[in-house]
Amino acid sequence: MTPLQLFLQQLANGLTLGAIYALIALGYTMVYGVVQLINFAHGEIFMVGAYAALTVALAITGAPWWAVLAVCALGAMALCGALGWATERVAYRPIRSAPRLNALITAIGMSFVLQNLVMRIYGATDRRFPELWPAVRWQWGGVTVTLTQVVVWGTAALLMVGLQWLVMRTRLGVAMRATSQDVAACALLGIPVNRIIAVTFALGSALAAVGGMLFGGYYGTINFHDGYLTGLKAFTAAVLGGIGNIPGAMVGGVVLGLLEGLGAGYLSSQWKNVFAFVILVCLLLFKPTGLLGERVADRA
């Protein structure tokens, strides 16, 4: 392998991880945008999404792989969307006007509840994730790209474009952006603020569910505590991109994935996590709002 081939290969590795981070980061950033809550249970919703996809995939047999993939994605999105909506309704809405710390601690509690619930249902050990797509690989000038990677990139890109369209071009999107600017004023103008916030939770959770499915399919094993570290990384990605900013979360996820991939590949794999967080700290020192995050500044 020439150095250039090696670099391109590492770029492909990092991009795959980054695409998954980006999908999860979107949920953190959307929720933060509308209610200024860091929803620490979001990583768990991602993990539930992986388990939901696993359950669906084991239930259907005999269909072509892309059909199974689509059904898995839709099933996981539906379940996690409902779960996101329900957590907002049950755990966060009643304390929305309370000090922000209460909501934060509720979110951490919610995360424990979901983790232990999944542990009860699926057991505490690693589960093998069924192969959702065939093991196809292409050689491209010495660089190997697998179908897995193409599926991850394609799905993530599709969903992000879809989300961007939804937020910028639809009435719902306008309402979401308005709510993120001023909840009270929106309510005065007749925007159903509660419903918009609930939809935001559901949307973010549905995206995380797809992230969970891709994560399971990519690595082949899942565990009930996978949501913790991956969720933390995705949260980091959201902060890196500028929390509250949707394109920021996408950019942050991809950048974090690339940093991790290149850091582990070129420096040292044992400092992989340290490397990513050091970059985050350095960036925040010089640009506290993150890469693209200017919108939140006016609220502070």
């Binding site: 590795n13 690595y219 996978d226 570290l229 582990a264 590949g265 794999s269 996590n273």
Partner: peptide, 20 residues
């Protein structure tokens, strides 16, 4: 001789480096 972290999932970067 390198280390990886317990609980980590993605080892493709280090494996790619080893492949080279």
């Amino acid at each position: 001789h390198e280390g990886i972290t317990q609980g980590d999932k993605d080892f493709t970067p280090i494996l790619t480096k080893i492949k080279a």
